[in-house]
Simulated scan of single mutants.
Amino acid sequence: MVQNFLEENNEKPKCGRNLCNCFNGNCSDGCDDEYDSYKASSPVDACDILKSLVPSVCVSERNLLADTARIVEKNKISKRKDGFCREILTDSLAALGYNASICKSKWSKTPSFPAGEYEYVDVVIESERFFIDIDFRAEFEIARSTKAYKLVLQILPNIFVGKADRLEKIIDIVSESAKQSLNKKGMPFPPWRKADYVKSKWLSPHTRHNLNNDADKKEEGLVEKTSSCDEIEFILVEKCSAVGEINGGDDDEKKSATPTALPWEPPEIKPKISHKGSKIVAGLASIIQDKP
C-alpha cells in the first residue's frame, strides 16, 4: 500500500506542482476532502483545543482511566498493543467489576483509503460505551514532523479512555495538524493518515469478544456433560438391576437398585499333609504299587 502510494505521487504530481500544497493554495481538485470536518487556523489553536479535549469529562471516565493506568503500570504493558496485553487488561478490568471486552473492527476499501482492521478494548458502563487504547499517541506519530506537530503529540495521552464524540474531535484536530506538518516538510499526505481512516480503527463495525462470557459458556458445557454422564450411569444401574430380577435371586437383591460389592477375602490355603513314619512312593513305582 505504501509503495503504490509513493509511485502514484511520483508519476502524477497534484495541482501541477511537484508536491501538493493545496492547504495554502486555491486548488479545487478535491485534495482537501480528508479534513473538511474540522480546520484549525494555527497550530497554537490546535494545541489549545486539544488541551480542553484530553481531560476526562465525567466521573466514570476518570475512574476507568485510573484503574486502567494502574493495570498498565503493574503489568508494564504501556508500550505494547498485542493480543496478550489486551487480554491482561480485559481480565483485570473484569476482575474489578467492569463489563470489558476485546473488540475487533473491520472496514472496507473506499476511494479515499484502503481496507483494514484494528483491535482495542472497550467498557460498557450503564449503556455507555468507552474506548480504551493503551498506546494512543503512537497511532499519530509521523516521520520528520515539525516542532508544532511535536507539541500536538505531547498533548495526546498515552492511555486514552473516552467516548466516541470526544475521540472524533481529537482525531480531526491531530489529522489536520499532521497534514500541515507533512506539507511543510515537502512530503505527501498518505491516505492512512486521513481522519476518516483513523476514525475507522475505533468507530467501524466491530465484533465484541468477551473472554469472561466464553469461560462461563465452557463451564456450563462441562456441567451439561457431567449431568449427562450421571444420567447414563443411572440407566446402566437400572439395567443391571433389571437383569438381576430376571435371573432370579433373593428378595433383598431384587429390591436393591444398585448392586452391592462383596467384601474381599484371601484365598483358602490348604494345609500340607505330613507323612511321618511312612514311606513315600513316587513315580512309576506308585502306580505299580496301587495295582492289585
Rank of each mutant, 00 (worst) to 15 (best):
F5A: 02
K150E: 14
K291S: 09
M1C: 07
E141V: 09
K194G: 05
F113P: 03
I171D: 06
K150L: 13
P188I: 03
I246Q: 13
I159C: 05
Y35Q: 05
R208E: 07
L153M: 13
S256D: 11
F136D: 00
E8A: 06
D230W: 12
I49V: 11
C31I: 05
S127A: 11
S256Y: 08
E245N: 15
F84V: 12
F130W: 01
V237L: 15
L64M: 04
L151H: 13
L167T: 07
D250G: 07
S105K: 07
S52P: 00
N183F: 06
I132H: 06
V223P: 02
L64N: 02
P267M: 01
V243N: 03
I132W: 04
K254V: 03
Y38P: 02
S28G: 06
E8D: 09
E126D: 15
V57T: 15
G25T: 11
P266S: 10
I77R: 03
S42E: 04
D133W: 01
R86Y: 01
I170V: 12
C27N: 09
Y35P: 04
V237R: 15
S278K: 11
A195C: 15
V59C: 14
L236Q: 09
C27F: 09
W107T: 02
S177Y: 09
V121K: 04
S52D: 12
E73P: 06
W192V: 04
E224M: 01
L203S: 00
E233V: 08
F189D: 03
S28D: 08
E253L: 02
L64K: 02
I170Q: 08
E119Q: 10
E168W: 10
D33P: 05
K254F: 08
P205N: 10
N21W: 06
H206E: 14
K276A: 10
I280Y: 08
I71E: 05
S228E: 09
L19S: 02
F23S: 00
D29V: 02
Q180T: 00
D214H: 13
A40C: 13
K76T: 02
V174Y: 00
K106Q: 15
G186E: 10
V57L: 13
I132S: 04
V237D: 11
L284C: 03
C229A: 12
L262V: 10
E73R: 09
K179C: 03
V123G: 03
S227Q: 12
P111Y: 01
D133A: 06
R193S: 06
G283S: 08
